[in-house]
Computed example of a mutant assay.
Amino acid sequence: MKKINVIDLDNTLIKFDSFKIFTIKFLKKGDFLLGFLILLRKIRILTLEEFKRKVILRCRKKRNYNKFIREFADYIMENINQEIFLKINLISDENTINILASASPSDYVNLVAEKLGWESISTLVTVEKFFHNYGEKKVLNLLREYPREKFFYNYAISDSISDLELLKLFNNYELVS
């Protein structure tokens, strides 16, 4: 039976909120509609889910989006918390699947996971639907993709209390600050 380790991306494997940086980088490119979306989110007219969906769909329309996403994934790789990364490597072996789990969009989370040689579960955005990989949905997504009958839930690490139910599924877990 393969064992799995689940590693949260934002404020765990990296020391910042990647979606916030992603949005700011696009805002700096002169997309002032993003500024308006940020304002609507700040005053709670948009939910977090609505905000993420609108931002991702808007950014995907930009010229050179794929190039931007690749460069952004490289930026994340340059900023990996080496202490956490080393810990994951020490508890991993040839029977381990490391899974990068994030509420951030699959557009760049999947690229980061690929660069690490890991798998990923993340927020999926299409024109028709939005699956926010957050809280209980993250738990359900993990259980669907990696059923407990087929995998040993070895280790999980996250900074977010919203991941506590996910963390408790594992033999060992850490809630870091």
Rank of each mutant, 00 (worst) to 15 (best):
L86T: 13
L86K: 15
V55A: 00
P105S: 12
I76P: 02
V112H: 02
R60H: 05
N89S: 11
P147N: 09
S18V: 08
K54W: 03
S160M: 10
F152T: 11
F85I: 05
F22Y: 14
K28E: 07
L13A: 12
Y155G: 01
F152C: 11
T23H: 08
L37F: 15
L86V: 10
F51T: 00
I99P: 00
N5V: 09
A101E: 00
D17N: 15
W118I: 05
I21W: 06
I69G: 00
K115T: 03
K25W: 07
G117E: 02
L167T: 02
K87I: 08
S18M: 07
D8W: 05
S162Q: 11
F68N: 06
A113S: 10
I24H: 13
K20M: 15
E83G: 14
R60M: 07
L142F: 03
L48H: 13
L39I: 12
K61N: 11
L124D: 10
L48Y: 13
S18K: 04
D107L: 06
E94C: 11
V6K: 00
F85A: 14
N141K: 13
E174H: 03
I88W: 09
F16I: 09
F32W: 15
E83I: 15
Q82G: 10
N89H: 07
I84G: 09
G117N: 01
F32R: 15
K87P: 04
L116M: 14
I99C: 01
F68P: 02
L40C: 12
D10Y: 07
T126N: 09
L143Y: 07
I84L: 11
I84P: 10
G117T: 02
N133A: 05
N95Q: 14
R144A: 14
T96Y: 06
F26V: 01
E136R: 09
I4H: 00
A73S: 12
Y146M: 01
S106G: 08
Y153V: 03
S102W: 01
